[in-house]
């Protein structure tokens, strides 16, 4: 069975010290599904996304991304850590877009997009450069390949970051508040790129405060609070007719 583009979790738990940040999280994301994760600050949205691409290690629970146990291999009695190379290969199939872009400042936009294919997959530079230019064009940044991050606006930087992730041909894309650090007039251009990506069938998990975007694009909206998934379902149910008291309160506060 091919599990590409899926995220599966059962009873996921993550704590920092004795502070439990994620508690018994279950996920069933199918290929091409768009999941928007909403919730108040500190509810664990970032931590959840960071666990899904292995930036944080979960304490307990099942976590399968693209059909494989992430970072570990299941044995009869335990989960054994995989070799570093295997983990890197798994992660290269999971794209991550950060709130603060995290472009490499010592590289141009093109070099940023090329960095994965060239430095990780060992692709020839010329081929990677052509692909990078095509990807930059697809996020509306034709001709910006030679610019350094500091020469680009926040919205442009974030689109380069998306192109950089896409260059690895990921099956799942994770977005951690991709528009929170942007000027309001720049939010639209990044959301447009994400919408385009969604229409092309990419599996996406998006932590966001953009309720309008969630309503329009998401297949599923997940409301988190205190490390728990409080409510999830179709956007029109969760966002317009929330059943849970906490969801109602949160939505009242943000609208």
């Amino acid at each position: 069975m091919n599990g590409d583009g899926t995220v599966f979790a059962r009873g996921l738990r993550k704590s920092f010290g004795d502070r439990v940040v994620l508690d018994s999280i279950d996920l069933d994301v199918v290929c091409g599904q768009i999941v928007c994760v909403i919730g108040p600050s500190g509810s664990g949205k970032s931590t959840l996304l960071r666990c899904i691409n292995g930036l944080e290690e979960v304490d307990r629970g099942v976590l399968r991304v693209n059909g494989e146990d992430l970072g570990f291999r299941e044995t009869a009695t335990s989960y054994r850590a995989r070799k570093r190379k295997e983990v890197a290969a798994q992660r290269s199939r999971i794209g991550m877009v950060f709130q603060s872009f995290n472009l490499f400042p010592n590289m141009t936009a093109r070099q940023n997009v090329m960095s994965g294919p060239v430095l990780v997959k060992g692709k020839p530079k010329a081929e990677a450069a052509r692909r990078a230019d095509a990807l930059l064009a697809s996020v509306g940044l034709e001709g910006h390949g030679g610019h350094y991050p500091w020469q680009l606006s926040g919205g442009q930087q974030q689109r380069v970051a998306i192109a950089r992730s896409l260059a690895m041909d990921p099956n799942v894309m994770l977005f951690d508040e991709p528009t929170s650090a942007l000027d309001p007039e720049r939010v639209g251009e990044v959301l447009a790129v994400m919408k385009d990506l969604a229409e092309r069938g990419m599996t996406m998990l998006i932590a966001t405060h953009e309720m309008g975007f969630a309503k329009e694009v998401a297949d599923t909206v997940m409301f988190m609070d205190g490390g728990l998934v409080v409510e999830q379902g179709a956007p029109k149910d969760v966002l317009c007719n929330p059943k849970e008291r906490r969801t109602q309160k949160f939505l009242e506060s943000v609208l």
Binding site: G95, N102, L103
Partner: peptide
């Protein structure tokens, strides 16, 4: 964040 971005790409 730089290290995390590199990790997310799977860099050694």
């Amino acid at each position: 964040g730089q290290i995390e971005a590199a990790d997310a790409l799977g860099m050694s």
